[in-house]
Computed example of a mutant assay.
Amino acid sequence: MTTPEIRLWNHLKRRQMQGFDFDRQRPIDEYIVDFYCKQLMLAIEIDGSSHDSEEAQEQDRYRQARLEALGVRFLRFTNWQVMHETDGVLRAIRQWIRDNSSTP
């Protein structure tokens, strides 16, 4: 895992995110997502500079569309956001869970 992935994982593991269980490096279909909550069908991706090129962005769009067709929903953050705006990233995840789950 990258440093930003480790930082976010420290807030997701052991059901720390509103009691939901997240896995890291979870295979889905023929892809692996950074973090995944099966109960929410939520994938969280942390994008580093390898995602900056147009080709990489096109591959990400294709991959995400394919997984969304299976019902997976996505939150994406950059390495910079995770490292420098950690609290904002965590708030965004909590807000997404509040807006998209039946659990308060």
Rank of each mutant, 00 (worst) to 15 (best):
P4Y: 06
I6A: 15
R7Q: 13
L8V: 13
W9D: 10
N10W: 07
H11Q: 15
K13N: 11
R14G: 00
R15L: 14
Q16D: 01
M17I: 13
M17T: 09
F20L: 14
F22H: 11
D23A: 15
R24Q: 15
P27D: 05
E30W: 09
I32N: 06
I32V: 15
D34A: 14
K38C: 08
L40C: 14
L40G: 14
A43Q: 06
A43M: 12
A43L: 13
E45T: 07
I46L: 15
I46G: 09
I46H: 09
I46C: 13
G48K: 04
S49F: 05
S53R: 03
E54N: 01
Q59E: 11
R61C: 05
R61K: 13
Q64P: 02
Q64Y: 05
A65K: 07
A69M: 08
G71Q: 09
R73Q: 08
R76G: 07
F77V: 05
T78H: 12
T78Q: 06
T78F: 13
T78P: 09
Q81C: 04
M83R: 03
T86E: 11
D87R: 14
D87F: 08
G88Q: 09
G88S: 11
G88W: 00
A92S: 13
I93G: 05
Q95R: 08
W96L: 02
W96D: 04
R98L: 13
D99C: 03
S101T: 07
T103G: 06
